[in-house]
């Protein structure tokens, strides 16, 4: 019963203009399909009971042809297909309109995390996406390596993130809230932990988030954090990561400028907190095997300093 509720909530829950269209079509098809399946199943069960071999049954007539029935068998699927066809074409054209203008959001898939860039404000973030509701968003997808796939079930259509191809979707989110999605094209060892979290917010909350993330990263506020920053800068962390306002400016790994303002870490793998950061920096390959983060074999006090520094990057 509980499962049925979960099912209904998630399947029928559309949070975007696009998914409303898709789910309506899905609902109509499902009703037709269930009726058809019932018809076939009931007929088969009837045949099995009515025509089972019993002593005293007459030997069946040897009939293998019936023109009228054969025509019916042919026409029935033809008509069904014709109806489906028109519905399909109509919905495609509503959901996937041609791209116009500059993208509002550029999302880049990496093994195994998401980079998100807002061209209008210049804000870069990772794995957690803040998006405004009731706005037509043109989202463009880039891949840094292999094929990934963007999918948030409540938003409807997914889109592959293909290297060498800039795909796009239109998205108009209708309901504010938090949504969970995942990379849906197999992209290597940690495909399972390339999850998506979207915060769909009204304009005020969204703009506040943008403003907070436009600021350069906090400078260390105490001695331990200072030490953490020095280790970060001197021990090649900056070859892959970016922290705004510091010399670290690479984009191989996620942008850390406002790391501790996120709710989860490692692409939705675990909640963002000091303990998890500690475990991660101590032995990355233990926490997320095969991730691109190398094992630096830091001493414990160095890890403490780095974690302390990172927790100040809000």
């Amino acid at each position: 019963m509980r499962m049925l509720v979960i099912l209904l909530q998630s399947v029928l829950h559309s949070a975007s203009v696009q998914s409303k269209e898709i789910n309506r079509l899905f609902g109509q098809f499902t009703i037709a399909a269930v009726l058809l399946l019932l018809f076939v199943s009931v007929l088969i069960i009837y045949i099995c009971i009515r025509f089972r071999e019993r002593p005293g049954n007459p030997f069946p007539e040897q009939i293998g042809k019936n023109n009228r029935l054969e025509w019916l068998m042919f026409l029935f699927p033809v008509v069904t297909i014709a109806i489906l066809l028109t519905a399909t074409i109509r919905t495609i054209n509503i959901v996937m309109k041609p791209a116009q203008g500059k993208p509002d959001v550029i999302i880049t898939g990496h093994q195994w995390w998401w980079e998100v860039y807002y061209p209008a404000t210049g804000v870069t973030a990772a794995n957690e996406f803040h998006m405004p509701v009731n706005k037509n968003l043109l989202i463009e997808f880039h891949s840094a390596d292999v094929v990934h796939d963007w999918w948030v079930p409540e938003f409807g259509n997914k889109m592959d993130v293909v290297p060498g191809r800039n795909n796009y979707i239109w998205l108009n989110i209708t309901n504010a809230g938090n949504y969970i999605g995942a990379c849906s094209e197999f992209c290597g060892a940690e495909h399972a932990w390339m999850r998506i979290k979207v915060f769909a917010e009204d304009e005020r909350a969204y703009n506040a988030w943008q403003d907070a993330n436009k600021k350069t990263a906090n400078m260390p506020s105490d001695e331990l954090a200072m030490r953490g920053m020095l280790i970060f800068q001197s021990r090649s962390c900056g070859s892959c990561h970016r922290i705004s306002g510091t010399p670290s400016a690479a984009s191989v790994g996620p942008d850390l400028s406002h790391l501790f303002s996120r709710t989860t870490m490692l692409s939705g793998m675990m909640p963002m907190n000091e303990d998890n950061l500690q475990a991660w920096i101590t032995d990355p390959q233990m926490v997320k095997p095969d991730s691109k983060m190398p094992d630096f074999i830091f001493a414990k006090d160095s890890v403490d300093a780095i974690v302390h520094y990172l927790t100040q990057l809000k």
């Binding site: 998914s19 269209e21 898709i22 789910n23 079509l25 899905f26 098809f29 399909a33 058809l36 399946l37 076939v40 199943s41 489906l84 519905a87 399909t88 919905t91 495609i92 959901v95 796939d149 999918w151 079930p153 409807g156 259509n157 997914k158 889109m159 849906s184 094209e185």
Partner: peptide, 21 residues
């Protein structure tokens, strides 16, 4: 029959976008 009907879902492009992979 059941598998055939769910198969038709994948021919309906917008539903395929939702369900594929």
């Amino acid at each position: 029959t059941f598998g055939g009907l769910t198969g038709v879902l994948f021919a309906i492009v917008p539903i395929d976008w939702q369900l594929t992979d």
